[in-house]
Amino acid sequence: MRTRHTGAATLAALTALTLAACGGGGEVGGGGEETGGAEGGGDSIKIGIKFDQPGLGYQDAGEYTGFDVDVATYVAGELGFEPDQIEWVEAPSANRETMLQTGQVDMIFATYSITDERKEQVAFAGPYFVAGQDLLVAEDNTDITGPEALEGKNLCSVTGSTSAQRIKDEYAEGVQLVERPGYAECVTALTAGQVDAVTTDDIILAGLAAQPANAGKVKVVGAPFSEENYGVGLPQDNDRCEDINAAITKMIEDESWDEFVTSNTEGTGYEPNADLNPPTPDACA
């Protein structure tokens, strides 16, 4: 249930209690301006997302859309923050750990896979989604049904990504790798016939396919061959993990999770891996 705190006296009391619980240092959840702990009620909460992933985290003319945005808004609501109390912050992949460690954000929802290596630097709640590496192909392509079918084909991924190289190393040694600066450029190359497929996580591909410019032109193959657990990135000294996991569980139980997936991938034919989704959040460390 969402909790609102109104009135200066209530807000002042809540702030005082929170500061006392933190030893008076005023550093709640790794930084940011909010002061309400798990109950919210502070000025704002800073949430890191991607700004350039259609269908997941996308910023356009001051509007923020996508599955990660919807999930983050829901979770923040359960923590007591209204949508207008959320400050969205761009969280590029390479900067996510630093942003959490230095208090630039309070939490991150940005296709952030939970790994043991990352757990040495930050904490995670969730997962709230389990993605898998997949392929995006032309709508009328019936030949490419999985990574093994890419032998001799042209495969696009973004510069610096390891996903395309993984296919070359493990599935199709003769695949020709093509790099582009972003996935949007890869999709442009695909629709122009310059490449045969694009690879990254399946829900990222579905978000790209759902864009109006790509509608009816491309499709997700639907044969994921990896497992990526998307978690909520948190500072290691946070006290929110259990509350976030409770919010994720509620989101799944009241079917909001299904609505968020559907609304952000509509028209692409994409279905999350039913053996892995919806996920069950892990116990907090």
Rank of each mutant, 00 (worst) to 15 (best):
residue 237 D to C: 04
residue 172 A to R: 08
residue 135 L to E: 04
residue 122 V to I: 15
residue 168 K to C: 04
residue 228 E to C: 07
residue 235 P to D: 08
residue 25 G to T: 14
residue 39 E to W: 13
residue 7 G to Q: 06
residue 63 E to N: 14
residue 212 P to D: 15
residue 36 G to E: 05
residue 231 G to C: 09
residue 75 V to P: 01
residue 94 A to D: 14
residue 24 G to M: 06
residue 118 R to L: 12
residue 221 V to L: 09
residue 19 L to H: 12
residue 56 L to V: 09
residue 100 L to P: 04
residue 204 I to F: 04
residue 19 L to G: 13
residue 19 L to V: 08
residue 92 P to T: 08
residue 106 D to Y: 05
residue 226 S to C: 07
residue 138 A to T: 05
residue 124 F to W: 10
residue 253 E to G: 09
residue 219 K to M: 05
residue 56 L to F: 00
residue 75 V to A: 03
residue 244 I to N: 01
residue 203 I to C: 01
residue 145 T to H: 07
residue 150 L to V: 01
residue 25 G to H: 11
residue 243 D to V: 02
residue 55 G to C: 01
residue 144 I to S: 10
residue 284 C to T: 07
residue 114 I to K: 14
residue 165 Q to F: 07
residue 58 Y to A: 02
residue 137 V to K: 07
residue 110 A to Y: 00
residue 144 I to E: 10
residue 142 T to W: 02
residue 110 A to W: 03
residue 252 I to E: 06
residue 194 Q to T: 09
residue 282 D to V: 06
residue 101 Q to D: 11
residue 178 V to W: 03
residue 120 E to F: 09
residue 259 E to T: 12
residue 15 T to L: 14
residue 280 T to I: 10
residue 18 T to I: 00
residue 252 I to F: 09
residue 116 D to P: 12
residue 285 A to R: 14
residue 14 L to C: 06
residue 251 M to T: 11
residue 221 V to F: 10
residue 261 V to Q: 01
residue 258 D to A: 14
residue 57 G to D: 07
residue 193 G to T: 03
residue 82 E to I: 04
residue 94 A to P: 03
residue 94 A to Y: 12
residue 50 K to R: 15
residue 59 Q to W: 11
residue 114 I to Q: 11
residue 233 G to A: 05
residue 218 V to I: 13
residue 266 E to C: 02
residue 106 D to K: 13
residue 126 G to M: 03
residue 118 R to I: 07
residue 285 A to V: 12
residue 193 G to W: 08
residue 250 K to V: 04
residue 86 I to H: 07
residue 175 V to H: 02
